[in-house]
Amino acid sequence: MAAAGAVVLLAVLPLLGVSNYVAGVGVTVFVFIVAALSLNVVYGLLGLLSLAHTAFWGIGGYFTAVTVVDLGWSFWLALPAGGLFAGLVALVIGYPALRLNRHSFVVVTLVFSLLTFLVARDWMSVTRGPMGMPGLPPPVFFGVPIDGPTGFYYLALAFLVATLALFYAFFTSRIAATMRAISQNEPLVRSQGINPTPYKLLGFFISAVFTGMAGAILVFHVRIIDPLIFDFFYMQAFLIMVIVGGRGSFWGVLAAGAAMSLLPELLRVSGDLRMVVYGLILLAVVSVAPAGFAGWLRERRNRRLRLELRQ
């Protein structure tokens, strides 16, 4: 009920006369939450620190933009196609990378992210190079163009709600339970006759698909895509959300994604010091709850249960 109430509240928010700035911030928050939850599949459930998340974020955006602008595809076809293309790239990269140890896997994903930036910058005939592709056409929904912050607010909200429903079902499934077991003790899982590789590839694929679609929605909202979509800032933001929320936690990362996306905007009143304040708040949160928000709540609950048993 609380989740349904939150969705209704978010849906009526633009009707209350909020500014275009607030609606635009809402779009960013919604797509950042999706990207953070997607990273949580790989890093939270499987325990694999993938630095390729920014690459899939940009690949989905570029594929959608190029197919709409150059090939004349509908945005509604190009959007899922961009996500699937990012997922296929994840499978191609993930299959050899996942055969390495965890440390080598991190290095491979980092190098892949750097390569995608170079491709976007230098493949002039497709990506238009450093200047990017400005003036992306707005999506058209039943003959009505979605070309303002309010329209994209509802588009991003619908995408978020659909993603949350799918991810909630996934995080409570047996597949997710097996992924957690792989993260905790892979040799034991192998001893039970389970091959971890398909689960790792599935997690990598799911993560890339939804991240690519989130990136595509963002670039069509701002009406331009350029190589800066591969900026490491995005990877850093998504990773912070997962760590603060608690690796592997659905609700924890959801709450942290919303809070950590809004916090920089709320701190704009501090001017040039806002990022310093943001860093201090982040440091304080991690120091108090090293296992994340979900881990902190779990520890408090276990402590209360132990006290009740002693009594």
Rank of each mutant, 00 (worst) to 15 (best):
T197M: 15
S125R: 08
L160F: 04
T163P: 01
Y153W: 02
R180W: 12
G143V: 02
T150D: 02
L157W: 02
T150S: 10
M131H: 12
F171Q: 06
Y199F: 15
A165F: 11
V119D: 07
I146S: 02
E186H: 06
S183V: 00
W123T: 13
V144G: 03
Y154F: 14
Q192A: 15
F142D: 01
R180Y: 07
S125T: 13
R174I: 11
R174K: 15
L201E: 09
T197C: 09
Y153M: 04
P137E: 01
G132Q: 00
V111A: 15
Y199I: 13
P139T: 08
A176Y: 06
T163M: 05
G143M: 05
I175V: 15
A181Q: 13
V144I: 13
A156S: 14
A169W: 15
F142L: 12
F167R: 00
L164K: 05
S125G: 13
L115P: 00
A181Y: 07
V126W: 01
S207Q: 07
A156P: 02
Y168H: 13
I175S: 10
P187G: 08
L110A: 07
V140F: 00
V189M: 06
P187S: 12
L164N: 06
L188K: 13
P198H: 11
F204E: 00
Q184G: 10
I175R: 13
P149C: 03
V189H: 11
S191I: 11
A158S: 12
R190D: 14
P138V: 08
M133W: 12
P139W: 00
A181S: 13
T163S: 11
V161Q: 07
G203W: 05
P134V: 02
T150M: 08
A176D: 07
I146L: 08
N195D: 15
L164F: 08
L118F: 07
T178C: 09
K200P: 10
I194C: 04
V140M: 01
P137Q: 07
F117N: 00
G132R: 09
G129F: 09
S173T: 14
P196T: 13
I206M: 09
F171S: 07
T172Q: 14
L188A: 15
S183F: 11
T109R: 11
D147N: 12
T116D: 01
A177D: 15
I175F: 12
I146C: 05
P145K: 03
T127C: 10
S173W: 12
P196R: 06
P138I: 05
L118Y: 09
V111P: 04
S173I: 05
V111Y: 10
A162F: 10
P196N: 04
